[in-house]
């Protein structure tokens, strides 16, 4: 499969790298236009939240891939909701008052 394949694997991760860069750049301009001032810890929290959300999605789909559908659903149910709540909290911290 592609992330592990000999040729498509490295290509996949290069493209993922580009996508992450574009995402972070887009986020930067988006916050500027919204008048959100990001200091270092707000950046850190935002990056951590996005990384965590990616890990939750990857975790659930790893379990799906292993044929552990029930475990994957519970995993995304628990941690997905948790990250959704954290996302709302983060948004309240970031949004200008």
């Amino acid at each position: 499969m592609y992330p592990n394949a000999l040729i498509l694997g490295p290509l996949f991760w290069i493209i993922m790298g580009v996508i992450y860069t574009v995402t972070v750049t887009g986020f930067y301009y988006w916050t500027k236009d919204k008048g959100i001032r990001l200091n270092w810890w707000k950046w850190l929290l935002s990056v951590l939240w996005f990384t965590g959300t990616n890990v939750v999605i990857a975790g659930a789909f790893t379990l799906f891939g292993e044929n552990e559908t029930r475990a994957g659903l519970y995993f995304i149910g628990l941690f997905g909701v948790l990250f959704l709540i954290l996302g709302v909290g983060l948004w309240r911290i970031l949004s200008p008052r």
Partner: peptide, 23 residues
């Protein structure tokens, strides 16, 4: 592009996860 990238990154994580589970 940033928003699209964010969605694609999540989709990529899902794909990588699925492949990792099946690998």
């Amino acid at each position: 592009a940033g928003i699209t990238g964010g969605v694609l990154a999540l989709a990529g994580s899902a794909g990588a996860g699925l492949a990792s589970g099946k690998n």
